[in-house]
Design a protein around this nucleic acid. Structure first.
Lengths: 174, 174
DNA sequence: GGAATATTACTCGGATACTTTCTGTCCGAGTCTACCAGG
DNA sequence: CCTGGTAGACTCGGACAGAAAGTATCCGAGTAATATTCC
Protein backbone atom coordinates (compact mmCIF):
# COMPACT_ATOMS: atom_id res chain seq x y z
CA UNK A 1 0.00 0.00 0.00
CA UNK A 2 2.02 2.89 -1.29
CA UNK A 3 0.78 6.35 -2.15
CA UNK A 4 1.76 7.71 -5.53
CA UNK A 5 4.77 9.98 -5.57
CA UNK A 6 2.72 12.45 -7.58
CA UNK A 7 0.81 13.38 -4.44
CA UNK A 8 3.91 14.86 -2.86
CA UNK A 9 4.66 16.77 -6.04
CA UNK A 10 1.10 18.05 -6.29
CA UNK A 11 0.95 19.32 -2.70
CA UNK A 12 4.30 21.10 -2.92
CA UNK A 13 3.28 22.65 -6.24
CA UNK A 14 -0.06 23.83 -4.87
CA UNK A 15 1.79 25.43 -1.98
CA UNK A 16 4.07 27.26 -4.40
CA UNK A 17 1.09 28.39 -6.45
CA UNK A 18 -0.55 29.64 -3.27
CA UNK A 19 2.40 31.98 -2.74
CA UNK A 20 2.23 33.19 -6.32
CA UNK A 21 -1.44 33.93 -5.80
CA UNK A 22 -3.22 35.76 -8.59
CA UNK A 23 0.00 37.32 -9.89
CA UNK A 24 -0.31 35.24 -12.98
CA UNK A 25 -0.22 31.66 -14.27
CA UNK A 26 3.01 29.69 -13.99
CA UNK A 27 3.93 27.17 -16.64
CA UNK A 28 4.75 23.54 -15.90
CA UNK A 29 8.44 23.78 -16.73
CA UNK A 30 8.97 26.50 -14.17
CA UNK A 31 6.97 24.69 -11.48
CA UNK A 32 8.92 21.50 -12.15
CA UNK A 33 12.28 23.33 -12.02
CA UNK A 34 11.74 24.27 -8.38
CA UNK A 35 12.28 20.65 -7.36
CA UNK A 36 14.09 19.27 -10.42
CA UNK A 37 11.07 17.21 -11.37
CA UNK A 38 10.39 15.82 -14.86
CA UNK A 39 8.13 18.47 -16.33
CA UNK A 40 5.93 16.23 -18.54
CA UNK A 41 5.07 13.94 -15.66
CA UNK A 42 4.31 16.81 -13.32
CA UNK A 43 2.11 18.20 -16.07
CA UNK A 44 0.17 14.94 -16.03
CA UNK A 45 -0.51 15.32 -12.32
CA UNK A 46 -1.53 18.95 -12.68
CA UNK A 47 -3.99 17.93 -15.36
CA UNK A 48 -5.71 15.76 -12.80
CA UNK A 49 -5.91 18.72 -10.43
CA UNK A 50 -7.49 20.81 -13.19
CA UNK A 51 -10.08 18.10 -13.88
CA UNK A 52 -11.03 18.18 -10.19
CA UNK A 53 -11.35 21.94 -10.05
CA UNK A 54 -8.31 22.56 -7.85
CA UNK A 55 -6.30 24.38 -10.52
CA UNK A 56 -7.15 26.35 -13.63
CA UNK A 57 -5.03 26.20 -16.75
CA UNK A 58 -4.35 28.76 -19.47
CA UNK A 59 -3.00 27.77 -22.88
CA UNK A 60 -0.69 29.66 -25.19
CA UNK A 61 2.10 32.11 -24.45
CA UNK A 62 2.12 33.49 -20.92
CA UNK A 63 -0.06 30.53 -20.00
CA UNK A 64 0.26 28.06 -17.17
CA UNK A 65 -1.50 27.02 -13.99
CA UNK A 66 -2.93 28.86 -11.01
CA UNK A 67 -5.08 27.90 -8.03
CA UNK A 68 -8.76 27.70 -8.80
CA UNK A 69 -9.78 28.84 -5.29
CA UNK A 70 -8.21 30.27 -2.13
CA UNK A 71 -5.66 28.06 -0.31
CA UNK A 72 -7.99 27.92 2.68
CA UNK A 73 -10.41 25.92 0.55
CA UNK A 74 -7.92 23.36 -0.77
CA UNK A 75 -7.51 20.44 1.62
CA UNK A 76 -4.99 17.63 1.49
CA UNK A 77 -7.86 15.25 0.90
CA UNK A 78 -8.87 17.19 -2.21
CA UNK A 79 -5.42 16.71 -3.70
CA UNK A 80 -5.13 13.06 -2.70
CA UNK A 81 -8.54 12.36 -4.18
CA UNK A 82 -7.58 14.04 -7.43
CA UNK A 83 -4.29 12.17 -7.85
CA UNK A 84 -5.10 8.77 -6.35
CA UNK A 85 -8.69 8.52 -7.44
CA UNK A 86 -11.82 8.08 -5.37
CA UNK A 87 -11.29 4.40 -4.51
CA UNK A 88 -10.82 3.23 -0.93
CA UNK A 89 -7.47 1.70 0.03
CA UNK A 90 -9.23 -1.42 1.32
CA UNK A 91 -11.75 -2.65 -1.21
CA UNK A 92 -13.84 -5.54 0.14
CA UNK A 93 -14.10 -8.26 -2.49
CA UNK A 94 -16.82 -10.07 -0.55
CA UNK A 95 -14.91 -13.32 -0.51
CA UNK A 96 -17.27 -14.45 2.25
CA UNK A 97 -19.89 -14.95 -0.46
CA UNK A 98 -17.66 -17.41 -2.30
CA UNK A 99 -16.87 -21.01 -1.46
CA UNK A 100 -19.00 -23.76 0.05
CA UNK A 101 -20.53 -21.45 2.63
CA UNK A 102 -21.54 -18.81 0.10
CA UNK A 103 -25.24 -18.27 0.17
CA UNK A 104 -27.11 -16.26 -2.40
CA UNK A 105 -26.11 -12.60 -2.35
CA UNK A 106 -29.48 -11.52 -1.02
CA UNK A 107 -28.46 -12.83 2.38
CA UNK A 108 -25.57 -10.36 2.66
CA UNK A 109 -27.48 -7.16 3.17
CA UNK A 110 -25.60 -6.19 6.33
CA UNK A 111 -22.03 -5.20 5.50
CA UNK A 112 -19.01 -7.35 6.30
CA UNK A 113 -17.70 -6.69 9.81
CA UNK A 114 -14.10 -6.83 8.64
CA UNK A 115 -14.72 -4.32 5.88
CA UNK A 116 -16.41 -2.14 8.47
CA UNK A 117 -13.26 -1.93 10.56
CA UNK A 118 -11.15 -0.87 7.61
CA UNK A 119 -13.79 1.61 6.50
CA UNK A 120 -13.80 3.18 9.94
CA UNK A 121 -10.03 3.54 10.03
CA UNK A 122 -9.98 5.04 6.57
CA UNK A 123 -12.74 7.45 7.53
CA UNK A 124 -10.51 8.82 10.30
CA UNK A 125 -7.62 9.08 7.90
CA UNK A 126 -9.71 11.05 5.44
CA UNK A 127 -11.05 13.26 8.20
CA UNK A 128 -7.53 14.21 9.20
CA UNK A 129 -6.54 15.00 5.63
CA UNK A 130 -9.72 17.01 5.07
CA UNK A 131 -9.01 19.18 8.12
CA UNK A 132 -5.63 20.39 6.85
CA UNK A 133 -5.45 22.90 4.01
CA UNK A 134 -2.73 24.42 1.87
CA UNK A 135 -3.20 27.62 3.86
CA UNK A 136 -2.38 25.75 7.08
CA UNK A 137 0.98 24.48 5.89
CA UNK A 138 1.72 27.83 4.29
CA UNK A 139 1.27 29.41 7.70
CA UNK A 140 3.54 26.83 9.31
CA UNK A 141 6.32 27.46 6.82
CA UNK A 142 6.02 31.24 7.14
CA UNK A 143 6.44 30.96 10.88
CA UNK A 144 9.70 29.07 10.46
CA UNK A 145 11.08 30.87 7.41
CA UNK A 146 9.25 34.17 6.78
CA UNK A 147 11.35 35.08 3.75
CA UNK A 148 10.58 31.95 1.74
CA UNK A 149 7.17 32.82 0.25
CA UNK A 150 8.22 36.07 -1.38
CA UNK A 151 11.42 34.49 -2.66
CA UNK A 152 9.55 31.63 -4.31
CA UNK A 153 6.94 33.99 -5.67
CA UNK A 154 9.49 36.21 -7.36
CA UNK A 155 11.43 33.30 -8.79
CA UNK A 156 8.32 31.70 -10.28
CA UNK A 157 7.21 34.96 -11.87
CA UNK A 158 10.47 36.30 -13.28
CA UNK A 159 11.38 35.64 -16.87
CA UNK A 160 15.03 34.62 -16.62
CA UNK A 161 15.23 30.92 -15.75
CA UNK A 162 18.67 31.37 -14.20
CA UNK A 163 17.64 34.03 -11.75
CA UNK A 164 18.65 31.99 -8.74
CA UNK A 165 22.11 30.61 -8.23
CA UNK A 166 22.02 27.02 -7.11
CA UNK A 167 23.71 26.21 -3.84
CA UNK A 168 23.83 27.10 -0.21
CA UNK A 169 22.54 30.43 0.97
CA UNK A 170 19.15 30.20 -0.70
CA UNK A 171 16.05 29.93 1.41
CA UNK A 172 14.31 26.63 1.60
CA UNK A 173 11.24 26.48 -0.66
CA UNK A 174 8.93 24.18 1.25
CA UNK B 1 -3.10 3.74 -3.22
CA UNK B 2 -4.58 0.30 -3.03
CA UNK B 3 -4.22 -2.22 -0.23
CA UNK B 4 -3.19 -5.72 -1.20
CA UNK B 5 -6.02 -8.19 -1.59
CA UNK B 6 -4.08 -10.59 0.61
CA UNK B 7 -4.98 -8.50 3.65
CA UNK B 8 -8.65 -9.37 3.28
CA UNK B 9 -7.76 -13.05 2.88
CA UNK B 10 -5.47 -12.98 5.90
CA UNK B 11 -8.01 -11.38 8.22
CA UNK B 12 -10.80 -13.74 7.20
CA UNK B 13 -8.48 -16.70 7.63
CA UNK B 14 -7.33 -15.55 11.06
CA UNK B 15 -10.96 -15.26 12.07
CA UNK B 16 -11.61 -18.82 10.93
CA UNK B 17 -8.55 -20.03 12.80
CA UNK B 18 -9.79 -18.23 15.90
CA UNK B 19 -12.92 -20.33 15.79
CA UNK B 20 -10.91 -23.51 15.35
CA UNK B 21 -8.86 -22.53 18.39
CA UNK B 22 -6.40 -25.09 19.65
CA UNK B 23 -8.33 -28.02 18.19
CA UNK B 24 -5.52 -28.59 15.79
CA UNK B 25 -3.68 -27.10 12.82
CA UNK B 26 -5.55 -26.57 9.55
CA UNK B 27 -3.74 -26.93 6.26
CA UNK B 28 -3.67 -24.25 3.58
CA UNK B 29 -5.84 -26.10 1.08
CA UNK B 30 -8.68 -26.38 3.58
CA UNK B 31 -8.40 -22.75 4.65
CA UNK B 32 -8.41 -21.64 1.02
CA UNK B 33 -11.42 -23.82 0.18
CA UNK B 34 -13.63 -21.83 2.55
CA UNK B 35 -13.56 -18.87 0.16
CA UNK B 36 -12.50 -20.55 -3.10
CA UNK B 37 -9.10 -18.87 -2.95
CA UNK B 38 -5.99 -20.08 -4.80
CA UNK B 39 -4.26 -22.17 -2.14
CA UNK B 40 -0.62 -21.46 -3.11
CA UNK B 41 -1.12 -17.72 -3.00
CA UNK B 42 -2.94 -17.83 0.31
CA UNK B 43 -0.06 -19.95 1.58
CA UNK B 44 2.28 -17.15 0.59
CA UNK B 45 0.32 -14.70 2.73
CA UNK B 46 0.17 -17.07 5.68
CA UNK B 47 3.94 -17.45 5.53
CA UNK B 48 4.20 -13.72 6.13
CA UNK B 49 1.93 -14.08 9.16
CA UNK B 50 4.18 -16.84 10.50
CA UNK B 51 7.26 -14.69 10.04
CA UNK B 52 5.60 -11.97 12.12
CA UNK B 53 4.58 -14.32 14.91
CA UNK B 54 0.85 -14.17 14.25
CA UNK B 55 0.52 -17.81 13.18
CA UNK B 56 2.49 -20.96 13.86
CA UNK B 57 3.00 -23.62 11.22
CA UNK B 58 3.44 -27.36 11.45
CA UNK B 59 4.93 -29.40 8.65
CA UNK B 60 4.17 -32.95 7.62
CA UNK B 61 0.93 -34.94 7.72
CA UNK B 62 -1.73 -33.49 10.00
CA UNK B 63 0.18 -30.25 9.75
CA UNK B 64 -1.09 -26.75 8.98
CA UNK B 65 -1.52 -23.37 10.60
CA UNK B 66 -2.94 -22.17 13.88
CA UNK B 67 -3.01 -18.87 15.75
CA UNK B 68 0.17 -18.13 17.66
CA UNK B 69 -1.67 -16.22 20.40
CA UNK B 70 -5.22 -15.54 21.59
CA UNK B 71 -7.49 -13.62 19.19
CA UNK B 72 -7.69 -10.79 21.71
CA UNK B 73 -4.00 -10.14 21.08
CA UNK B 74 -4.16 -10.06 17.27
CA UNK B 75 -5.06 -6.63 15.96
CA UNK B 76 -5.91 -5.60 12.43
CA UNK B 77 -2.76 -3.52 12.42
CA UNK B 78 -0.68 -6.61 13.15
CA UNK B 79 -2.05 -8.34 10.09
CA UNK B 80 -1.76 -5.30 7.84
CA UNK B 81 1.82 -4.79 8.95
CA UNK B 82 2.68 -8.40 8.22
CA UNK B 83 1.18 -8.43 4.71
CA UNK B 84 1.86 -4.90 3.52
CA UNK B 85 5.18 -4.37 5.23
CA UNK B 86 6.26 -1.71 7.68
CA UNK B 87 6.47 1.17 5.17
CA UNK B 88 4.23 4.22 5.43
CA UNK B 89 1.72 4.87 2.67
CA UNK B 90 3.12 8.36 2.14
CA UNK B 91 6.89 8.25 1.92
CA UNK B 92 8.40 11.76 1.79
CA UNK B 93 11.09 11.89 -0.89
CA UNK B 94 12.37 15.25 0.37
CA UNK B 95 11.97 16.88 -3.01
CA UNK B 96 12.28 20.21 -1.22
CA UNK B 97 16.02 19.52 -0.96
CA UNK B 98 16.33 19.27 -4.73
CA UNK B 99 16.35 22.02 -7.33
CA UNK B 100 17.73 25.55 -7.24
CA UNK B 101 16.48 26.21 -3.74
CA UNK B 102 17.99 23.06 -2.30
CA UNK B 103 20.36 23.90 0.47
CA UNK B 104 22.72 21.43 2.03
CA UNK B 105 20.88 18.67 3.90
CA UNK B 106 22.08 19.94 7.26
CA UNK B 107 19.55 22.75 7.00
CA UNK B 108 16.62 20.31 6.95
CA UNK B 109 16.70 19.07 10.49
CA UNK B 110 13.10 19.95 11.19
CA UNK B 111 10.76 17.63 9.27
CA UNK B 112 8.76 18.67 6.23
CA UNK B 113 5.43 20.21 7.18
CA UNK B 114 3.64 18.42 4.37
CA UNK B 115 5.04 15.06 5.39
CA UNK B 116 3.93 15.85 8.93
CA UNK B 117 0.30 16.16 7.88
CA UNK B 118 0.34 12.81 6.15
CA UNK B 119 2.16 11.20 9.05
CA UNK B 120 -0.48 12.49 11.45
CA UNK B 121 -3.33 11.14 9.34
CA UNK B 122 -1.66 7.79 9.01
CA UNK B 123 -1.04 7.67 12.74
CA UNK B 124 -4.78 7.96 13.34
CA UNK B 125 -5.43 5.26 10.77
CA UNK B 126 -3.00 2.91 12.48
CA UNK B 127 -4.46 3.73 15.86
CA UNK B 128 -7.89 2.67 14.68
CA UNK B 129 -6.61 -0.58 13.24
CA UNK B 130 -4.60 -1.30 16.37
CA UNK B 131 -7.70 -0.93 18.55
CA UNK B 132 -9.68 -3.64 16.76
CA UNK B 133 -8.79 -7.29 17.24
CA UNK B 134 -9.84 -10.59 15.73
CA UNK B 135 -11.75 -11.27 18.92
CA UNK B 136 -13.79 -8.09 18.41
CA UNK B 137 -15.04 -9.07 14.96
CA UNK B 138 -15.59 -12.64 16.15
CA UNK B 139 -17.91 -11.26 18.80
CA UNK B 140 -19.75 -9.13 16.24
CA UNK B 141 -20.34 -12.09 13.98
CA UNK B 142 -21.50 -14.33 16.82
CA UNK B 143 -24.09 -11.75 17.82
CA UNK B 144 -25.55 -11.74 14.33
CA UNK B 145 -25.18 -15.43 13.50
CA UNK B 146 -24.49 -17.54 16.62
CA UNK B 147 -24.33 -20.81 14.73
CA UNK B 148 -21.56 -19.81 12.35
CA UNK B 149 -18.46 -20.36 14.52
CA UNK B 150 -19.19 -23.97 15.40
CA UNK B 151 -20.18 -24.74 11.84
CA UNK B 152 -16.93 -23.35 10.45
CA UNK B 153 -14.94 -25.06 13.16
CA UNK B 154 -16.36 -28.48 12.39
CA UNK B 155 -15.93 -28.10 8.67
CA UNK B 156 -12.29 -27.04 8.99
CA UNK B 157 -11.49 -29.98 11.27
CA UNK B 158 -13.32 -32.82 9.57
CA UNK B 159 -11.48 -35.08 7.17
CA UNK B 160 -13.89 -35.37 4.28
CA UNK B 161 -13.47 -32.35 1.99
CA UNK B 162 -17.05 -32.70 0.72
CA UNK B 163 -18.70 -32.45 4.08
CA UNK B 164 -20.67 -29.36 3.19
CA UNK B 165 -23.01 -29.17 0.24
CA UNK B 166 -22.57 -25.95 -1.66
CA UNK B 167 -25.58 -23.70 -2.01
CA UNK B 168 -28.27 -21.93 -0.10
CA UNK B 169 -29.12 -23.02 3.38
CA UNK B 170 -25.60 -22.94 4.73
CA UNK B 171 -24.66 -20.42 7.37
CA UNK B 172 -22.56 -17.50 6.33
CA UNK B 173 -18.93 -17.78 7.33
CA UNK B 174 -18.23 -14.01 7.40
C1' DG C 1 -0.68 57.00 -36.07
C1' DG C 2 -4.13 53.49 -35.17
C1' DA C 3 -6.53 49.27 -36.00
C1' DA C 4 -7.44 44.93 -38.12
C1' DT C 5 -5.27 40.73 -39.58
C1' DA C 6 -2.33 36.96 -40.45
C1' DT C 7 1.56 34.77 -38.53
C1' DT C 8 4.18 32.66 -35.12
C1' DA C 9 5.66 30.67 -31.16
C1' DC C 10 4.27 28.86 -26.93
C1' DT C 11 1.24 26.22 -23.70
C1' DC C 12 -1.63 22.50 -22.21
C1' DG C 13 -3.74 17.88 -23.27
C1' DG C 14 -4.01 13.22 -24.30
C1' DA C 15 -1.91 9.12 -26.50
C1' DT C 16 2.33 6.15 -26.23
C1' DA C 17 6.62 3.09 -24.14
C1' DC C 18 9.13 1.41 -19.93
C1' DT C 19 9.72 0.02 -15.00
C1' DT C 20 8.17 -1.63 -10.67
C1' DT C 21 4.83 -3.87 -7.85
C1' DC C 22 1.36 -7.16 -7.17
C1' DT C 23 -0.85 -11.57 -8.36
C1' DG C 24 -0.59 -16.30 -9.29
C1' DT C 25 2.04 -20.79 -9.79
C1' DC C 26 5.38 -24.36 -9.27
C1' DC C 27 8.71 -27.63 -7.27
C1' DG C 28 11.95 -28.97 -3.48
C1' DA C 29 13.31 -29.56 1.79
C1' DG C 30 11.72 -31.12 6.05
C1' DT C 31 8.70 -33.82 9.06
C1' DC C 32 5.25 -36.61 10.96
C1' DT C 33 2.63 -40.88 10.25
C1' DA C 34 2.01 -45.47 9.38
C1' DC C 35 3.53 -49.79 8.28
C1' DC C 36 6.65 -53.66 8.82
C1' DA C 37 10.00 -56.62 10.74
C1' DG C 38 12.29 -58.39 14.64
C1' DG C 39 12.62 -59.63 19.56
C1' DC D 1 2.32 -58.87 21.92
C1' DC D 2 5.47 -54.99 22.03
C1' DT D 3 9.22 -52.12 20.19
C1' DG D 4 12.39 -50.14 16.98
C1' DG D 5 13.37 -48.91 12.35
C1' DT D 6 12.31 -47.64 7.77
C1' DA D 7 9.76 -46.19 4.00
C1' DG D 8 6.28 -43.24 2.43
C1' DA D 9 3.38 -39.40 1.80
C1' DC D 10 2.06 -35.05 3.17
C1' DT D 11 2.95 -30.20 4.55
C1' DC D 12 5.17 -25.84 4.50
C1' DG D 13 8.79 -22.78 2.34
C1' DG D 14 11.00 -20.19 -0.99
C1' DA D 15 12.06 -19.59 -5.98
C1' DC D 16 9.86 -18.69 -10.64
C1' DA D 17 6.39 -16.47 -14.57
C1' DG D 18 2.35 -13.36 -15.85
C1' DA D 19 -0.62 -9.24 -15.17
C1' DA D 20 -1.62 -4.71 -13.62
C1' DA D 21 -0.48 -0.32 -12.01
C1' DG D 22 2.74 3.42 -11.70
C1' DT D 23 6.38 6.16 -13.93
C1' DA D 24 8.31 8.67 -17.63
C1' DT D 25 8.01 10.59 -22.31
C1' DC D 26 6.54 12.45 -26.72
C1' DC D 27 3.89 14.93 -30.22
C1' DG D 28 -0.34 17.36 -31.71
C1' DA D 29 -4.49 20.81 -30.96
C1' DG D 30 -5.51 25.17 -29.40
C1' DT D 31 -4.51 29.89 -28.00
C1' DA D 32 -2.72 34.35 -27.06
C1' DA D 33 0.82 37.55 -28.13
C1' DT D 34 3.18 39.86 -31.86
C1' DA D 35 4.66 41.73 -36.05
C1' DT D 36 2.84 43.40 -40.34
C1' DT D 37 -0.05 45.80 -43.40
C1' DC D 38 -3.68 48.73 -44.68
C1' DC D 39 -6.65 52.76 -43.75
Amino acid sequence: MRMSEGVEWAVHTCLNLAWVGSAGPVRTARLAAVFDLPAPYLNKQLQALVRHGILTSTSGPKGGFRLARPPEQISFLDIVGAIEGPGEAFHCREIRQRGPFGNDPAGYRQPCAIAGVFAGAEREWRRQLASQTIADVARDVEEGSPEVPERIRQWLLEQDPEGVIRGAGNPRPI
